[in-house]
Simulated assay, not measured.
Amino acid sequence: MPKAEETVLEIDLNALKKNYTHLKTKLNSNTKFMAVVKAFAYGNDAAVIANFLQTIGANYFAVAYASEGVQLRKAGITAPILVLHPLPSNFDAIIEHCLEPNLYNSKVLNEFIKTAATKNQNNYPVHIKFNTGLNRLGFTKNDVKLISNKLAETSTIKVASLFSHLVASEDLNEKAFTLHQIHTFKNIADNFSNTVGYKPMLHICNTSGILNYPEAHFDMVRSGIGLYGFGNSETENKHLTPIATLKTIISQIHTIKKGESVGYNRGFISDGNYKTATLPIGHADGIGRQYGKQKGYVVIKGKKAPIIGNVCMDMIMVNITNIDCNEGDETIIFDKNTTAEDLAQTANTISYELITGISQRVKRTFLK
């Protein structure tokens, strides 16, 4: 890998392919794979990631918002794209760009049918989400008749899939809850199919669902975090490779004497003689203030260098007292060895928050 000359997020597409292939081995050959590329593909560049996954066989893509789907269409994605949280104000754009909305309550169902009718659509593919316990978005099991009655009144839409979202598929202490969700979803799906007279695709499994509940793979699965190298458990992490390396360089080295302070609000006051390195990355780049004051760390020359003082907007300062290094030397924020999950844990958060928060002003490079 090339040495860093600036702050850069280096993305390994070979690792992405490895993760995709590993997850595919868990599925039956006829189970479709939906790649979740919302939030800039979890901070990695949605256009590049989705185009690569499309070439190696991903069947579907999922984004959170319509604008993300529009960007993918403009980037050359031709596969179906599910918009997980569409808003009525975006329905025109959804239809214009052949995106497929999740209809999760009566309001969005009625309004999408109205919009589709004004555009003379016929059997436009939509997805119906049912709430089985997450209590975030979705119809209830008691809404099947309401939905079927509405479908009977129009030919503008047709249900491509029914889906739900597992609450705690990574936590085997919550296995009973997860199994109850799966059972509830099966009953809803059976009731729906019997009522409307056809069987849409079914999907409920996220990455941890893929790994822990093979009986619930149904017609399609959805994977986000697993594609990017995290399996939500130590066991599964061994089979996946984080695809991103965030690295930067040392801009300047300082000698700090006893009683001197470092950074804003004197966030670090020296109790002896220290050496510090200033790095060109800060909370505007996604390294939040919660990593400051010796909670988080970077790696220089294979050694941990704690972040001292408060994280600045564009810079952090780290303790290099016991590290032999120079200005211009490469610094690792996270990679496949010292992972984003490791760093996130120092601030009592999760890898998802860290990797999706890496600012788009950070340069992305791709290894193929």
Rank of each mutant, 00 (worst) to 15 (best):
P2G: 11
A4N: 09
E5T: 15
E6S: 13
A15D: 02
K17N: 11
K17D: 12
T21A: 15
K26T: 10
L27M: 09
N28E: 14
S29P: 10
S29V: 15
V36A: 06
V37E: 06
A41T: 01
A41Q: 00
A41S: 11
A50F: 01
N51D: 08
Q54K: 13
Q54L: 09
G57Q: 00
A58N: 03
N59I: 05
Y60Q: 00
V63E: 02
A64N: 10
S67D: 13
L72G: 08
K74Q: 14
A75Q: 08
P80K: 09
L82I: 14
P86D: 07
P86R: 05
P86Q: 08
S89C: 12
A93H: 12
I94W: 10
I94Q: 06
E100N: 14
E100V: 15
V108T: 12
V108H: 00
F112H: 02
I113S: 01
A116G: 01
T118G: 12
Q121Y: 06
N123H: 11
V126S: 06
N131Y: 06
G133V: 01
K141V: 09
N142L: 10
D143F: 04
K145N: 14
L146H: 08
K150S: 13
L151E: 04
K158N: 12
V159I: 12
L162T: 05
L166W: 00
L166V: 04
V167A: 14
E170V: 01
A176I: 13
A176W: 06
I182L: 12
F185C: 07
N191H: 13
S193E: 14
H203I: 03
I204H: 05
S208N: 03
I210Y: 03
L211T: 04
Y213H: 04
Y213N: 03
H217P: 06
H217V: 11
F218G: 02
F218E: 07
S223I: 01
G229M: 00
E236Q: 00
E236T: 02
T241R: 04
T241E: 09
I243A: 01
I243T: 02
T245I: 03
K247L: 01
T248W: 00
T248Y: 01
H254V: 09
T255E: 14
T255P: 03
I256S: 04
K258I: 12
V262E: 00
N265I: 09
Y274G: 06
Y274F: 12
L279V: 09
L279T: 07
I281M: 03
G282I: 03
R289K: 13
Q290L: 14
Y291P: 01
Q294F: 09
K301P: 07
G302V: 08
K303Y: 07
I308D: 05
I308V: 15
C312L: 13
C312Q: 13
T321P: 01
T331H: 10
D335R: 07
D335I: 09
N337Y: 14
D342W: 07
Y352H: 07
E353S: 12
I358K: 02
S359P: 02
K363I: 09
T365W: 04
T365Q: 12
T365Y: 02
T365R: 08
